[in-house]
Design a protein around this nucleic acid. Structure first.
Length: 154
DNA sequence: GCCAACGTTGGC
DNA sequence: GCCAACGTTGGC
């Protein structure tokens, strides 16, 4: 069992949007970074738990929890010329981009803002709070997961 | 294979 | 809207 953090801009797709999906489940599409693609391909497993992070908003922070319910499969938006994620170099016979499906588990009573994450010494090693981090999916240790769950008020 | 130009992310 | 960080592209 691994732990992850996934970022989304709430204007585009928020935790409430996920909670309102049929079966509270959606595919996490649009990943166009090779490091993140490799994590999806190799490391993200069914049953893994994921923090939902709202980025590029006020305030940014962790707002809830979800679970991986389907492991890596081709990201079909790469083949759709009308999609903003269209990538003409992704061959349907050898897809370059992958995605997983995630299911809503819980919205935190108290969102854990980026400021709070940065202020907690136990989380100083998280890549999220280090400068220059731009990956949209990050691995989280069990200790970090437990720390953040303790901060969110359940 | 170097590296400048360019595009994107995301906090502020 | 600014801009630092940094990944990607493409000329050479």
């Amino acid at each position: 069992m691994n732990y992850w953090l996934m970022k989304s801009e709430p204007d585009a797709f928020s935790i409430d949007d996920l909670a309102n999906m049929p079966k509270k489940t959606e595919h996490w599409d649009g990943i166009r970074n090779y490091q993140v693609r490799n994590m999806i391909r190799d490391d993200i497993k069914k049953g893994d738990l994921v923090l939902f992070y709202h980025s590029n908003c006020k305030p940014p922070g962790v707002v809830g929890m979800m679970e991986v319910v389907k492991e890596a499969y081709p990201d079909h938006t790469a083949f759709d010329p009308d999609s903003k994620y269209f990538d003409p170099k992704s061959d349907p016979d050898n897809p370059r981009w992958l995605m997983v499906d995630v299911k809503f588990k819980k919205k935190f009573k108290h969102m854990v803002s980026l400021d709070e994450l940065k202020a907690n010494p136990a989380l100083a090693e998280m890549r999220l709070v280090q400068r220059g981090n731009r990956l949209s999916i990050l691995p989280i240790t069990k200790a970090e997961w437990d720390e953040i769950i303790a901060m969110c008020g359940g």
